[in-house]
Amino acid sequence: MVETARQRLVAAILVLLLAALPALASLLAMPDLISLGTQVAIYAIATVGLNLLIGTTGLPSFGHAAFFGLGGYVVGILAFHAAEDSAVFGLFPGATDAWIVWPLAIIIAALAALLIGALSLRTAGVSFIMITLAFAQMLFYLFAALKTYGGDDGLGFRRRNALPWVSPRDDVAFYYVCAAALLLVLAGFHLVARSRFGNVLQGIRQSERRMAAIGLRSYRYKLAAFTLAGGVAGLAGALQANMLRFVSPDMLHWTTSGDFMVMVVLGGTGTLFGPVLGAAAMVLLQTWLAQWTEHWMIVMGPLLVAVILLARRGLWGALAGK
């Protein structure tokens, strides 16, 4: 994945850029770069997880936004109850400490992925695509109906989750938190890809039938990958909620799932740094096109079609070679 000298170079430049972005922002007097960079890092985290499914295992999940949104709502709902001093489902109190809320967001998203994956993975191919889509949309409707938590309008809260030594108001500090989370996730997935577990997933992508022929029961590994990816999406969702101090059903909307898939393919399916490039390209393109015209989707749509039809290798392949 990151093997040739050129690939190492591109990877090093990316990591360096990630670290130096705040300095760059003040140097260029472009403070917007901080929020853009934060958004890129968060999307990249979610996409790294999805890439494990699409790129490594060959599972085209169309419901990734569900776990992203769940992670976000864990943050939002706990903040809501903390502010109201009431109890969630009348059982336990709200919370605002990151060290409680974020792990909880990961766990709940992972549990939902375990459940949805257990059912969805009974199917394959197009059915799998549609079922993951439908389950995610089910959660979308659920949150849109929860009037207590804002329903369609979403749920705002006043303050980011508290972290030790980090001021919740400091946007640069929050950027560093997200960038550090991204680097941790990347390092983790780098190891996972080469582990026995990653080995099996790659085998499943190449041929599930052949894996059965050497004695492997693939279902449990696919389910584990699905759960892991869901948990990571939950972390990304928790960060997203913190960035905006707002959550809404849009986080779970199927177009968000579509955006994540686009980022995987745009960046380079199955590569470690592809998701970072895909997320960056998507965020920058949207920002740039939106400045240019209100009807930016009219460019984005055909661009996407062209990328799928013509550019198969993605940005990582274009920059770093195969």
Binding site: G258, M261, V262, M300, G301, L304, V305, I308, L309
Partner: peptide, 9 residues
């Protein structure tokens, strides 16, 4: 899926 997603947009 992705190409026709682009068409929807």
């Amino acid at each position: 899926v992705l190409a026709t997603f682009g068409l929807i947009l």
